[in-house]
Design a binder for these strands. Structure first.
Lengths: 238, 238
DNA sequence: GAGTGGTCTAGACCACGAC
DNA sequence: TCGTGGTCTAGACCACTCG
């Protein structure tokens, strides 16, 4: 390839040109593209600049890179949806609605097996802190929060006052998490949940289960029960 | 700050040290951290290296950066959940199950208003291609795909044979998308959907609605109805 | 062994935006 | 105005991995 007439000296312009060639099928899925040094020569820029552009494309899954074998156009460009997980209070306030919060209970109790497993609790009958609360938007139930907190990972939780501040916020300030897992599913809501959310029994609810880790162990696992009609929205890339 | 005894000369080690200080509350939420030049001096590395580390932290939402005002620890570290959206066939095969596919119908029809809106169709009664299909895992219904394709964006779809290849795959090969939107919700399934998915009416289903754009216009919008019990799983970061 | 991407450096200039 | 992050360059060395 001869050098281009006009050189591309920003990594964004290099990225755009590479994307154009991929979309125009000049470089086809599964095929290799020229190496960084060659592209730098063609585009009239430093190799570092090409590297930055291709690295960004690799992060979003458009191309795949391997040392020695080079860069190729991804065969099955996976789409990605990125959900932002804000504080529930922020989520409600950002909709321009008034936030409210009702604590149902907060007490130490034997963890059911699903919770013991998620929190990595060893013995049978180990206790954890159970917090049940309803978040309100404009006075109406918005989401039910059913949370278990690992007391060996966040002992301070026993002395926290969850009537004043939701467990959601207390944890964010006192035990920030490093990683975790989110599971989304749909289910018919049970009698107890229906009562707390002001729903008919067996109404279809959206359930989010989040388990989060601190330094090296699980800190908390929470089930969020959203009322029917709730929509999780996210942009889609690739 | 005096230079460290041992210098940190990889961007990963700089990132780790910065993270450590944030987690140890040496640098607190909302507060500014030293500028790149100072950190580079302290760590004994080039400013470029510090830049790379802080840029990565900014991308994952741990810090916020602005020219002139500098870098500060994010006040509300939003968590992010990243879902990968594979082909449905791959999703099933990756579970080690046998993939099957049944086309219910594929015909040009007047788009209902929700679809016309999503696809950006102008006039009333504009037609689009409607494709209804069931994806099977081990012979059992797995998900119902209710798709509408914008014929002005993908005219070739009229001549495609959707009995042999799902619309999902045809579109990925013939009209790759650039961006879009994903909406997740729960609902009680209707009579028609229940029959196709082999469910009782009003069973709680998980609904994914994806609308995707090509160069400059919407290409397709699809509703996926997943059977009760289906779980969407994703890692959680920050 | 040799080719490729991954990264570091030192220096430079620029663009944004708070003051 | 001017400090801060954003980026480019040219050169260098290293790490992985294929043949």
């Amino acid at each position: 390839m001869p050098p281009l007439a006009t050189s591309l000296n920003t990594w964004q312009s290099v990225q755009t040109e590479v994307l154009r060639r991929i979309r125009a099928r000049i470089w086809k899925p599964g095929e290799p593209i020229p190496n960084e040094a060659d592209l730098a020569r063609e585009f009239g820029c430093a190799r570092t600049t090409v590297n930055r552009a291709l690295r960004a494309l690799a992060e979003s899954g458009i191309v795949e890179r391997k040392r020695k074998s080079g860069t190729r156009v991804a065969l099955h460009p996976v789409g990605r949806a990125v959900f932002e997980i804000p504080l529930i209070r922020k989520e409600i306030e950002d909709q321009g609605r008034r936030y409210g919060y009702t604590l149902v209970c907060a007490n130490e109790a034997a963890a059911p097996s699903r919770v013991a497993y998620a929190l990595g609790l060893k013995g049978d009958g180990t206790t954890a802190l159970h917090v049940l609360a309803v978040h309100l938007a404009d006075g109406q139930p918005y989401v039910l929060e059913d949370r278990w907190i690992n007391l060996s990972a966040a002992p301070g939780a026993l002395r926290a006052d969850f009537t004043a501040q939701s467990a959601n916020e207390w944890l964010l300030e006192n035990a920030p998490y490093i990683g975790g897992e989110l599971v989304i599913s749909a289910a018919a809501c049970g009698e107890a949940e229906a009562a707390l959310l002001d729903l008919k029994e067996a109404a279809p609810v959206l359930i989010l289960e989040r388990t989060t880790w601190g330094e090296n162990r699980p800190v908390t696992t929470v089930r969020l029960w959203y009322r029917p009609g709730h929509r999780l929205i996210s942009p889609l890339v690739s």
